[in-house]
Design a protein around this nucleic acid. Structure first.
Length: 803
DNA sequence: GAGTTTGAAACT
DNA sequence: CAGTTTCAAACTC
């Protein structure tokens, strides 16, 4: 198979995929469900990672004539994410002739066979179509051929998709495809074989409502006879799963999985118009809302609660250690239901590598450029809330296939991309990006001209709320991407053949993104360090988020954001990592902190740096070498201790001999953790009862507190005085007199007292004698008075001038 | 800022 | 696995 084999998923890092299931899925016969006319083998599987198996239900159905190519499902058991209400389940039902093989079929949907088995068991019971309690979104996949369902799972050929969602009251919501939709055909460039084009279903849902959106994409309308091979059609599945503790107060885990089905076959047409086949929600009954017809392909944001709510209130914890293949977001129940959510339905449709276009790079050498102007690709952004940051976003260029999808979570180094093999034609939906000035165009289900070339885009996103024109950089099909905000490199380059690193894929640095190299037949990957995503977070993004008909317009509005002037003021200061200064390692050894953290060097002072996209192949080799030496080389060194231990500890322990583990030479001390039993340090003083350690800690704490307090006090006083002077304009007589006293208002008095108290505390901290304390206080009082008088005098002068 | 110290990483 | 070397950060002056 010329596309990325589904098996590839099996070797993805644990963080990315569950590999167990993949073993069972070894290249099922591609043609099992493929019509004979199909000239090229296609991946028959659309492995999806599912951490919450119970959500997936594959039930054999009775419709033999139709097949569902791919399903994108977003499931959430929690209301805070997406629009599912608590307990809502997304059920994917795949029809097959063989009921007993259902488990096998499910494996195709999920990457983990073991999970699948569990899922079956779990799902069988809870799944009650009419159950008001278990709200389920059901996608019924009907296999057309009835051939062994176990091997051929999600096929792209003729398909009918039924999405059945149960409202809170258990009323079903069904998405059905039009009858005409099932058999799109496209002639292959070479053989002219007309084979049905795979239809893609993409379902993205979030929040309390059963379905945020379901999109179907049909490639049927691709220009026939086009000689230029279209890049593999890819189907992405975005899955967001939340694990919700029984207790609503507990943290919830949200998993966002994006699975993309890749089309390995070259599809015809350079410019492919891929109309979105529209389907309808046949019924949607909820007590709250009347039955409604929803066009598939339409981006739907149903809920006020949703991803956005996660962003605002939830912690995003994406750990590669927990569930590799998924993006896990631990979210707390949203307290702000009305927050904006940008959950483009078509997020799953995005086929492009996400990248961020950067502002003009200050490091020309690092920035790539495309030689050929190309149609701008539409991108989509999935926005999910993160800690301390409003959102994490997934930018998905919609136009071209890509195996990579990034999920960005602020504060998290881990970003996952799923690579899923699938055969399909063009992805249809999306808007014409080149003219996109508003994200609303993106989610439209209109047929669009698609750029077939592989494109990797970098799209800068500006945090600003203003919708601006999106001007993605033209990319070449061969593309390397490029871009960097500020000085950062942002893009994905054609990578060395994956096999080079496959043996160690499971140990890739956290957050590493595998991106198919353009023109490499999806077999090449660029390794994107987690930093890449992190950098994106820090930088501006172009956000093209689909809004839905339901959603609050203001919040979920599609937006195109561009960097206003390159760097935002905070950009320079927001960089989490210090620049490295490597001179000999080429930043390709673990000596380099950037490299060790899975980041590209950015704004570093390194010499002869290879830790960038320009040297991706070298970088891959270096990664492989590191992993060969130490399979967990890129795993965080600081992790939890033994079972039950809550404190962090160094995974290997330190080996300090001279520093007493009380200097930053010591990795334990540097991480602000105490040495543990696994440390081999000599003369360690970094333990709980160590007086030296306590002293150091106290000093450090005291210094920090001191600075903070002083800063706060000064700021407060200054602001208050300034504020007073501006808004309280006392009657000032030119004669002066007692003018300064008119400025001693309550606020000024309070601010002054704060300053005086601070001096007292300061003296106390240093165990100063009372006399010294009094002196400090008096001096501070004098200073305050001087400032008040000065301000008053200035006000007087100003008044005199004005008068 | 230059030089030294330190300990992890890399190498043998 | 142990000893040595290399390396870059931390630290000192």
């Amino acid at each position: 198979m010329d596309v990325v084999s589904p098996d590839l998923n099996s070797i993805l890092p644990d963080e990315i995929m569950d590999t167990e299931a993949m073993a069972m899925e070894e290249d099922p016969p591609a043609d099992t469900l493929t019509p004979p006319s199909r000239s090229a083998p296609e991946p028959t599987q659309v492995p999806m990672e599912t951490e919450v198996p119970e959500i997936v239900n594959l039930c054999p159905t009775t419709t033999p004539t139709q097949k569902t190519e791919a399903l994108t499902t977003l499931t959430a058991t929690d209301s805070t994410l997406c629009s599912f209400s608590p307990g809502t389940q997304l059920v994917i039902t795949s029809s097959s002739s063989a009921g007993p093989k259902m488990a096998t079929t499910m494996t195709t949907v999920q990457t983990s066979s073991t999970v699948v088995g569990q899922n079956v068991t779990k799902l069988s019971t809870p799944f009650t179509p009419t159950s008001p309690v278990n709200h389920q979104l059901i996608i019924n996949k009907v296999a057309a051929d009835g051939k062994s369902p176990g091997t051929a799972v999600l096929k792209q050929e003729g398909q009918k998709l039924l999405v059945t969602g149960l409202s809170k009251t258990g009323q079903p919501i069904v998405f059905a495809l039009p009858n005409t939709w099932s058999k799109p055909a496209t002639s292959q460039g070479t053989g002219g074989d007309i084979k049905p084009q795979p239809t893609q279903f993409k379902v993205v849902s979030a929040g309390t409502k059963p379905v945020i959106g379901v999109q179907t994409v049909s490639s049927a309308n691709q220009l026939p006879g086009s000689s230029s091979p279209l890049q593999a059609q890819q189907l992405k599945t975005v899955q967001i799963t939340k694990k919700t503790p029984v207790s609503t107060a507990g943290p919830m885990i949200t998993k966002l999985i994006i699975t993309k089905a890749l089309n390995n076959k070259g599809l015809s047409s350079q410019a492919t118009i891929t109309p979105v086949v529209t389907g309808r929600v046949l019924t949607q009954s909820t007590p709250v809302t009347p039955p409604r017809t929803i066009t598939i392909g339409e981006t739907i944001s149903t809920t006020p609660q949703s991803l956005s709510s996660v962003s605002s209130n939830s912690k995003v914890a994406i750990s590669p250690l927990k569930s590799p293949s998924k993006v896990t977001v631990a979210a707390q129940p949203s307290n702000s239901p009305q927050k904006p959510m940008a959950v483009p339905l078509n997020v799953a449709l995005g086929q492009q590598i996400l990248t961020v276009q950067q502002t003009p790079s200050t490091s020309p050498a690092k920035a790539g450029s495309s030689s050929t102007a190309q149609t701008v690709k539409p991108v989509q952004t999935v926005t999910v809330g993160g800690v301390n940051t409003p959102q994490f976003k997934t930018i998905i260029p919609l136009a071209t296939p890509s195996n990579v999808q990034q999920i960005q979570v602020p504060g998290s180094r881990f970003h996952y991309v799923r690579l899923v093999t699938a055969t399909t034609g063009n992805t249809a939906q999306t808007a014409n990006s080149s003219t996109t000035t508003n994200s609303t165009t993106i989610h439209s289900a209109k047929p669009m001209v698609m750029n077939t070339a592989a494109v990797r885009m970098s799209v800068p996103i500006v945090p600003a709320q203003t919708v601006k024109q999106v001007v993605p950089k033209p990319m070449t099909s061969a593309a390397q991407v490029v871009s960097s905000s500020q000085t950062q490199q942002r893009l994905i380059m054609p990578a060395a053949p994956l096999p080079q690193i496959q043996p160690n894929l499971t140990n890739l640095p956290p957050g590493t993104v595998l991106a198919p190299a353009p023109g490499s037949g999806n077999m090449g990957y660029a390794v994107l360090p987690a930093q890449y995503v992190t950098q994106l977070q820090q930088s501006t993004f172009v956000t093209l988020a689909s809004s839905s008909s339901f959603s609050a317009p203001s919040s979920i509005q599609t937006q195109a954001r561009l960097p206003l002037n390159g760097l935002s003021p905070s950009d320079a200061t927001s960089r989490p990592r210090k620049p490295c200064n490597c001179t000999k390692s080429q930043c390709l050894k673990l000596y380099c902190d950037c490299f060790a953290n899975g980041e590209f060097c950015n704004n570093c002072n390194c010499v002869n740096c290879f830790n960038n996209l320009d040297h991706e192949s070298d970088r891959l080799k270096a990664i492989k070498a590191c992993l060969d030496r130490n399979p967990v080389a890129f795993k965080p060194k600081i992790g939890k201790g033994k079972e039950g231990e809550s404190e962090r500890r160094h995974s290997k322990g330190c080996n300090c001999k001279k520093s007493g583990c009380l200097k930053n030479y010591c990795e334990c001390y540097e991480a602000k953790i105490m040495c543990s039993s696994i440390c081999k340090c000599v003369g360690c003083k970094n333990f709980e009862e160590s007086p030296e350690r306590k002293t150091l800690m106290h000093l450090a704490d005291a210094a920090e507190v001191r600075v903070q307090q002083q800063t706060a006090a000064k700021t407060k006083l200054s602001s208050q005085i300034s504020d007073l002077l501006t808004r309280t304009t006392p009657t000032i007589s030119s004669s002066g007199g007692k003018l300064p006293y008119t400025f001693v208002t309550k606020e000024v008095a309070e601010a002054t007292c704060d300053c005086l108290l601070e001096q007292g505390r300061k003296a106390e901290r240093y165990n100063q004698p009372q006399a010294v304390a009094e002196r400090l206080i008096l001096e501070e009082f004098g200073h305050c008075l001087c400032r008040i008088i000065s301000s008053a005098a200035k006000a007087k002068t100003d008044c005199s001038i004005n008068c």
